[in-house]
Design a protein around this nucleic acid. Structure first.
Lengths: 355, 355
DNA sequence: CAAGGATGCTAAATCGTATTAGCTAGGCTG
DNA sequence: CAGCCTAGCTAATACGATTTAGCATCCTTG
């Protein structure tokens, strides 16, 4: 209707040239003043004041696009993951990265591959085209991935993932091995020497979810500590998936033949299933059976009794990825020496272990 | 060490000028060809071929930053939310938006405010500075928000949120009212006429979590249907929070004085607590008590028996936000007439209601 | 064969900023 | 008073594309 409706919607924004004009100086001078180098560039205090005043009067904000083009740095980090949504609270990975990035003045440009390698390639390409300063390639559960070549030419880091073949790229993963040791340690300290059953993984290749780094390392840690203590587990029930129903089935099968004293569940969803199976048989946690688990999924603290578990440090993992990228500079560093960063998994001691 | 180590890490990328030079034409011609307007601009087929060949040989990719500066469009949408992480699977909101955006060739630039209005302001400012084509202001649970003025000057939409004061901005929210009707309908169809208790909210102002739109609308929907059927609820137990412990307490209190036939829990976490309290008293779902709930949190299908619930359509909400922004164009439209979009909450009929 | 139109290009301006390389006027020195 | 330094600026260029305007040729056509 009215003639001043701008169909593009955006009021033409004020530019540096506008500010310079209003202050009666050249754009060059205005730029110097606003970048804080006025004194150094011998702009008189009077001129400085006029520029600052004009900038504030006109609500001047520099156009980041233009700055990026000129300086070659975008203060943007690409975050490419297989999936943010499927894994319930893995969004915390993003949150950690987001906050760490923001503290360094950067924002995250996110993309999701759904596990499709072609889409992954295109997304990394898109990040590159937009001149993201660096790229984080994240997986929502720890696994080995093949590193797209495009990542090797730019600052990049693997988050919650390991390179399938040795590549010049750093990784940030949870310290599953130590977590395995700690899980076993909790039971040992509580005095358990026998009747310990593993729910979720066993030594065999087909006794665990494929590609799961967690299964292998958690088991290794458990095994290491138990062996050192001179004891062995009474049984190990492997599952190809780690959902509540799998835990239920495993414990039901177990209860059909014997009476466990303690369970190490390979994640909290399995533990939920285990609780259900135990309760179905009228067994109490921890009076009859103790349970220790991994992940610290929200349900761990919703269960009754609350579950003792080794927490996946999602938030901290996200932060570390950014830290690794920025190393010790104010901008992401080139692909240097690759390193493997293991983030500790804290023990959440709650009420599911007797003692 | 070696002289060719580029400390910035990035190989200088090939530009349009490089391609033009290799093809023996001007950058102008190269641009015409690569933008598909070669024929229209009367570039000879031979020249076209040379340009395309050169572009492919040199692995040319246009610099998006430069294109954005020139065209004033960034193919980037800002996604500003209070928190992605705290609410367990609300990441699906992002996922929906992400996929819909990608289908339109855009990526999401994300930021999180942690509920801090100043940070929110700064983030929106940052999105604006980067010339995001539009901004989505998302809340992880449906509530009324005060709309930052900066949003009104650009294409924007509220996701899972309503403007506190009437503002010229569209909203996308779940249809909580209809969901309330459906929840009551499920019980009515199953033949319940009395003994229906509400867990989580009641008619009083202090009988529900503050600022929760869901509480008000779900209750209104329930009330509407029950009134129409000529029945009323046997009791309503309001809670200021909707965690499992609250549900447990409520149902425990309820069982101390009577025997409900059916529960409408205002979310799945309350329902989890209700299950625990029922089980503690030796009552079976649904044989003794039926339960219907809201949200379709992952736990809804982990519980035994699986919970009948009205799903929050997170994914669809995210998609709709993008759809609303793009309306019927290839780029976000100016802030036009504000509309309220209600996305249906599908019924997940499972095993917690006797039938 | 001159006028006019199509053909096949390219030069130059533009987007908004940062930065390098001057340029001018005044003061000081010798 | 010539020469040099300093203070206080600005012109010009670059970043990497897109787009408008225009410039030669060659081919028709009356």
């Amino acid at each position: 209707m009215s003639a001043d409706v701008n169909p593009g919607g955006a009021t033409p924004r004020t530019t540096l040239a506008d500010v310079a004009r209003a202050a009666g100086v050249s754009p060059t001078s205005a730029s110097f003043v606003l970048s804080g180098r006025g004194r150094q560039m011998r702009i008189s205090p009077e001129a400085e004041d006029r520029v600052r005043q004009a900038a504030s009067d006109l609500h001047y904000r520099p156009n980041s696009i233009s700055v990026s083009l000129r300086k070659g740095i975008t203060h943007t980090i690409g975050f490419v993951s297989d999936t943010v949504a499927t894994t319930p609270h893995a969004g915390t990975l993003i949150k950690g990265a987001l906050e760490a990035a923001r503290e360094r003045g950067s924002l995250l440009l996110i993309g999701e591959t759904e596990g499709d390698p072609e889409l992954e390639r295109r997304l990394i390409q898109a990040m590159h085209d937009r001149r993201a300063d660096a790229v984080i390639l994240a997986s929502m559960y720890t696994r080995k991935v093949s590193v797209p070549k495009a990542l090797l030419g730019m600052p990049a880091v693997l988050l919650n993932a390991l390179p399938r073949r040795q590549a010049g790229i750093s990784s940030v993963i949870p310290d599953e091995l130590a977590a395995g040791r700690d899980a076993a340690g909790v039971l040992l300290r509580a005095g358990f020497r026998d009747g310990i059953h593993l729910i979720g993984a066993g030594p065999g290749r087909n006794q665990r979810p494929p590609h799961s780094v967690a299964a292998v390392e958690r088991l290794a840690g458990i095994s290491e500590v138990m062996t050192a203590a001179g004891i062995t587990w009474a049984g190990a029930y492997g599952c190809l998936e780690w959902e509540p129903a799998d835990g239920y089935r495993a414990v039901e099968a177990l209860l059909a033949t014997g009476r466990p004293k303690a369970l190490i569940c390979f994640n909290d969803r399995l533990a939920l299933g285990a609780y259900q199976a135990l309760s179905h048989r009228g067994l109490q946690v921890p009076a009859d059976v103790s349970v220790v688990s991994f992940d610290d999924d929200p349900i761990a603290s919703w269960l009754k009794p609350q579950l003792t578990t080794l927490a996946l440090p999602h938030y901290e993992l996200g932060r570390r990825a950014i830290d690794v990228l920025f190393a010790d500079g104010d901008r992401p560093r080139a692909p240097g020496e690759a390193a493997l960063h293991r983030v500790p998994m804290p023990l959440r001691q709650r009420a599911s272990v007797a003692g």
